[in-house]
Nucleic acid binder design. Structure first.
Lengths: 144, 144
DNA sequence: CTGATACTGAGACTCAGTATCAAAAAGAAA
DNA sequence: TTTCTTTTTGATACTGAGTCTCAGTATCAG
């Protein structure tokens, strides 16, 4: 059993929740894919294997995975929410290509610390942030 | 006639579009309010004066105002889109209180330039970005 | 004034996400 | 393994933001 799965089981147990086959499937699929995925995409793919899987379960589970920090939520170029497996990954933000949708991760301790300083100055307690840069990736630079 | 209205008329004309009473009302209202407003809020308020105003017109017009840089779009704490009049305002980002919804503007040339450098390094052509910090504002710091 | 064209509003539609609730599954304890 | 409580599930209906369509209407250049 992977590290992530153990964390998930522990989290679930510690909160008095229950471990289920559906939750396990969703976690497994998200981890395996290694990409950003929309709830809808997860739903449709897993539904092919298990035609009884419900939409709501997927949404609920992804939210749960976000809560226990195994997944993180990212807004894509069209304003929709997607999730990515985030265990062991340090915090990072995204550049999103408006043409092909490809995302490139970036992180900048210097931006983070400037951000923290600005917030402090305005009396703001930071809980989380979202820093998304939209534009064209190198591959799409000169295309229509 | 305000500067903004002139810009709007010119933009509309230059694109071969037409100036209408509805568009004017929506622009006027957005400018007067000076706040971030959801399309729905604009719609309901203006609808009271003009019961024939259509939802779609509001959405279309706000998008048009965004195109000609008279308004800018900001995601609120619940992930919904809002607009604010942005003419003459330099670019800025937002800190959003997750308790009361209040937004505080900030701008940091240093963050902007770090961002530009990172993008350049990854071969990314920046078109726009969104940097939103969520947390608690000073007034809500100690509340439930 | 007139005609070409853009715009409008009504309403149907889409799509992401949520609420509800009865039936099913989990898992602790016996 | 059986029982019992609690959580979870999936079907379904719903919500709310935003889009599409289209017939009728307004704008404005000539």
């Amino acid at each position: 059993m992977t590290e992530e799965k153990k964390i998930f089981r522990d989290y679930v147990k510690s909160r008095g929740l229950k471990h289920t086959a559906q939750r396990d499937e969703i976690l497994t699929y998200l981890l395996k894919s290694g990409r950003h995925m929309s709830p809808e995409e997860v739903f449709h793919t897993l539904r092919e294997r298990d035609p009884k899987l419900g939409r709501a379960t997927v949404f609920r589970t992804l939210k749960l995975l976000e809560e226990c920090r195994l997944a993180s939520r990212v807004t894509d170029a069209n304003g929709h929410q997607t999730y990515e497996g985030s265990y062991g990954k340090p915090h990072h933000d995204h550049m999103i290509c408006v043409r092909c949708g490809r995302t490139v991760e970036f992180s900048s301790p210097r931006i983070e610390s400037l951000q923290a300083r600005i917030a402090r100055r305005k009396g703001f307690q930071v809980q989380w942030h979202r820093h998304e840069i939209f534009g064209r990736c190198s591959r799409c630079e000169n295309k229509i």
